[in-house]
Every structure is written in C-alpha cells, then in structure tokens.
C-alpha cells in the first residue's frame, strides 16, 4: 500500500524560483528511500512539502490519508503526529537533558506520564543512548546529538520518518552509525524512512530505493539504486 502519493506537484517560491517541476511519485509503507540530487535540486523543498512547512503551488500530496496540500494551518498538528522529522542541525533544546528532549515531544501532545516514561526510554534505547539519559546535548558528540533527535522523532511511533541530510554535519564513521540506526528502525519497527542526502558512499552501500532530482525534476526512481554521477 502507498503511504505517500505525490501527483503532479509544482512548487514556485514567492521570489519566482521554481523548485519542483511536475513531480509524481509513490512511496510504499515500510520503504527506505534516499532522495538525492545536487545542491538546489529541490530535495529540501520536497521534504518541506511532506511535513507541510511549504505548500505545493499546484498538485496533490496524499500522506496516510491526509491531503497535505489542503491542510489548514490549525490542523497541521494532525499530520505532524503521523511523522517524525530529523534535520541536519539536530534542533535539540540545550537546557534539557537527553531524556527531557525526547520526552518533550510526548509532553507537547499531552501524553500521560507513565506513557511518556515508557516510550521515551524505549526510543532512547533504540538509538543506543541509554547510558546518557541525564546528559545535556552540549556534552554529546554530533552523532550522539543526531541520535537523540532521531529518538525524539520516533518516540510517538510515527508511520514515517523524514530526514533532511541527517548526516550533513557528521564525519563518515558517525554518518554510517546514524544510517545504521535508521536502518534498524526501518527493519525492526517498520517505520517508512525518507532521507535526503549528498552522501554517495552511504547510498551506494545501502542499495535502497533511490529518487534522484535534478533542477527540480525527477530524473531517476530506482528500487535498488546507486548514486549515479551521470544522471546528477
């Protein structure tokens, strides 16, 4: 079954830049998808439209039964509860511990205390940071901080995990660590994962579904793809 169905989406920014041209694609439940492409190819734009930070100028995005493009501002939270989001810059709260940062996501949606505790510990365990519960983000390495961000993104068991260059600030070893955490989540929990990246080694090693963008157009959609220099 398709978790995401994108139909003829165009995105023109206010300044007149067209970031996405007539994009149509489907993503199945449980899939692990890399979105690749050069700088300015529209990867972030596509991802922002998925979690409704940006709206398509035309076309339709159906995500888990929600018509994302038509979603009113006051109803965006319904979409956001279905997905987790991870950014290149982690976006953790520096004054909160690892535990509190992850629990924050559940507190914000009004979960019960016992539920918060149980799910938070589980998510932190899944990313392998159980020994750092009381640590503050500034005392962690970049890779560890990103794992906290991933724990926060998956703590509410979303169907979909969206990552915009999660390894962008990390060295190759740490990047591999992060991708293997994502792979574990994909395999063990069954979470669908979409990850925008520049990292060709990782894409080539993982042999996952690859979507390649070039200047806002879909140029490649392969089930088991690699980072192809000629196309991009």
């Amino acid at each position: 079954m398709d978790l995401i169905n994108i139909k003829h989406v165009n995105k023109v920014y206010k300044n007149g830049v067209t970031a996405i041209y007539d994009l149509s694609l489907k993503i199945k439940k449980g899939d692990f998808v890399f979105v690749i492409g050069g700088s300015g190819s529209g990867k972030s734009t596509l991802i922002k439209m998925l979690y409704r930070e940006e709206r398509p100028t035309s076309g339709e995005i159906i995500l888990g039964g929600l018509n994302v493009a038509k979603l009113r501002n006051s109803k965006v939270y319904k979409l956001r509860r279905k997905l987790g989001i991870v950014f290149q810059d982690y976006r953790l709260l520096p004054k909160l511990t690892v535990y509190e940062n992850v629990a924050f996501a559940l507190e914000a949606i009004g979960a019960r205390k016992e539920e918060i505790k149980k799910k938070t510990i589980k998510a932190i365990d899944l990313v392998g940071l159980k020994s750092k519960l009381r640590t503050y983000p500034t005392e962690l390495s970049g890779g560890e901080q990103q794992r906290v961000a991933i724990a926060r993104a998956i703590v509410n068991n979303p169907k979909l995990l969206i990552c915009d260059e999660p390894t962008g600030n990390l060295d190759p070893d740490m990047s591999r660590e992060i991708v293997s955490v994502l792979d574990t989540i994909n395999k063990e929990v069954g979470t669908t994962i979409i990850m925008a990246t520049h990292d060709r080694e990782i894409v080539n090693e993982m042999k996952k579904h690859v979507i390649a963008l070039k200047d806002g157009r879909l140029v490649k959609d392969f089930e088991k793809g690699t980072y192809d220099n000629e196309v991009i």
């Binding site: 979690y51 006051s74 965006v76 939270y77 989001i85 976006r91 709260l93 914000a108 949606i109 509410n156």
Partner: peptide, 17 residues
C-alpha cells in the same frame, strides 16, 4: 521561539501551544 517551533514540529496543536 525554538521551543515553540519544535512543539509545532512534533505535533502540538496551536491551542495547546
């Protein structure tokens, strides 16, 4: 600001923010 944007991101409704 950061806190609010993360709350929005993880699915807090506008009223509860």
């Amino acid at each position: 600001k950061r806190e609010i944007s993360i709350m929005r991101l993880v699915g807090a409704s506008n009223i509860s923010i």
